[in-house]
Design a protein around this nucleic acid. Structure first.
Lengths: 205, 205, 205, 205
DNA sequence: AATGAATGAGCCTTCATTCAT
DNA sequence: TATGAATGAAGGCTCATTCAT
């Protein structure tokens, strides 16, 4: 980065990131050009380079940004939501390309990018580890709400399973835009009970 | 396609597809150049165009190829495999970038491409629908092996859930190359029992 | 066109067109490469595309440009020129490849291009129709200067005949670079009198 | 040339030239590819190179071929044709792209090529000189048929004038495909009388 | 004599990045 | 700080020509 950290600077960076994210979602990393991003951000292409070293740096920054949003999204999860309804809405948003706390296309785009760019790879690994910790905290709260015994290893397994399932749905949303959400709901009903219900504390000595 | 369907022609196409697949996995669709693919295939760039109309046509062909491989992979699933071991190996292969019946990077790459190229999108949608039918057939066989009642809607829900979970693992493999497979195994143990165990036929008249 | 219509923009376009015209005359549309044109214009290849959408667009623009020049050339024809001398000079200019209001090589190049590119074809048809109107106006003035009766159909026939003859000379200039201009002059003396002399108004009632 | 001059050889060359001419007329020198020519000739691309050294050599050969055809066309001119009708038909044929003794598009194409390729240029110059001699002979016959005095210089001037006019019409045919032939006829009536009518021998002492 | 697969140089065009203003 | 004109290195693709069979 080449600009001092004034408030103005931060606002400009934010403008660029928001514009870039929109462009990346619509066209993908490669097809989105700096010119288009600049226009979407309402500034000149040259100016972007005052706030970011390269197009790649923007991608990295967006990944970080996504991390914050996802973390906030998880932290705001209520204790006992109507899970089925919630995930259905999320899935529908993905299919429509909406920019919720996790945009499906952007998620795949960044994931694919990780296989090539080591910087992206490590950024993603760090972000995902962070996310899972927050997710874990939420699950722990769930377990405690059920007055269940909290086995850390068990919690982690459930968290990973649930995360994989939801991310798998992101792929489905992209690859099968016509998949009906009732079928997703049916699939969830197969999985969620066993993942979100914790056994009562046994009287194991 | 512009060449007659001789055996030679088919061999050349295959050589090109294999080379392209390697390049796409390593660098992604965009970053992989025709020159690189040609070199990897041991031929000149111009020759490729005798067998494929464009770089894009190669991508489409690879998607079809993947479909066949995935279908074969599913059809060859044994009736009662050691599921835990099987998925662990699959996951490890993905992390290593191995080219099993589904390469994780290529899977993400094609998925991401679908958000931009309508031709890719419809090819993927068709392929995935096809795959799920085969997957469904396998699950039906599982249920029958357990002498369970076979409710089609229930089967479809289980199939979609299992597919989403496994594809979610593909993302994990790419984004967390250091994720230990024992944790994946633990996650599976949370899910598989409820997905692969079918209730005994109730004595409903 | 992709750039605003500032004076600078227009100057750049002009620079490109002039360079392209030189290259096209020397090498033909196909053999003239964008790299050569860029070099001749003193700029980088990429910059040309800020001012023209494609190589083809440059050709179209040159045709329009030629139209303006030809029109100006005709409009500036004096009422009673020394025709013989004038056409001799024109012909000599063509043989030398000079860029008068009509360069012979470019004229043939554009004409040949019309047989392939429909856009060029219609541009040329429109330009030629426009040109003939101006030419016609000039002939009408000639007739009136001779106090002759003005029959429109007759005027048009003379204009077409004269135009064909002159354009035929352009071909001769290209195909017979050693043809002596005195022979051209002799040929003209066979034609011009009957074309440029209008009969006195008959006392037809 | 690389093949012995057997009858077979000559037949093959002719097949190639005929095919090439058709392709060149339809697409122009550049756009017509060797593959297309080979297909039109019913042979493989490689075989063409047994009979011609290069694509350029084919162009040269076609020019020579055209020379022969044009010469034959002129030599077969009847002594007192219905000139108006004859040229109208010629013009219509050009507009339709028909391959008479002079195809308009091919004529322009070769002419344009002459400005770049010296070999083409000299071939054309030689051909045109040859043609004019034949044309001259025909005019001389015309004059004698009218029992007119035959002034060589005068004949040459008339021949050049007529040639330029007709070739100018070839350009018109290409550039104005919608030009009505009645207007061409009217233009001819302005020119031909003065060119084809020879004064009776004056009793110059 | 004949094939058509193979070559590879070169073309038009794009776009991340720089720089004069 | 901001502009947007300018750069130049690739990239996908074509096609005349060659060569093994």
């Amino acid at each position: 980065m080449s600009a001092p950290q004034t408030a103005r600077t931060e606002a400009q960076r934010e403008r660029i990131l928001a514009a870039a994210q929109r462009c990346f979602i619509r066209h993908g990393f490669h097809a989105a050009g700096m010119a288009g991003i600049a226009e979407a951000a309402g500034m000149s292409p040259g100016l972007i380079y005052r706030y970011f070293d390269s197009k790649n740096a923007i991608i990295l920054a967006i990944i970080e940004r996504q991390l914050l949003e996802r973390r906030a999204g998880i932290d705001s999860l209520p204790a006992q939501p109507d899970w089925e309804q919630r995930i259905r809405e999320l899935f529908l948003g993905w299919q429509r390309g909406e920019d919720t706390w996790m945009n499906a296309a952007l998620f795949l785009e960044t994931s694919a990018q990780a296989t090539r760019d080591p910087a992206v790879a490590s950024a993603l690994a760090a972000a995902d580890a962070d996310i899972r910790e927050h997710f874990l905290a939420w699950m722990r709260a769930q377990a405690q709400a059920q007055a269940a015994s909290v086995d850390e290893a068990d919690l982690r397994a459930r968290a990973l399973a649930l995360q994989s399932f939801i991310e798998g749905l992101a792929i489905r949303a992209v690859r099968e835009p016509l998949l009906e959400d009732v079928r997703v709901a049916a699939a969830m009903r197969q999985l969620l009970p066993s993942l979100l219900h914790f056994p009562a504390p046994t009287s194991k000595p």
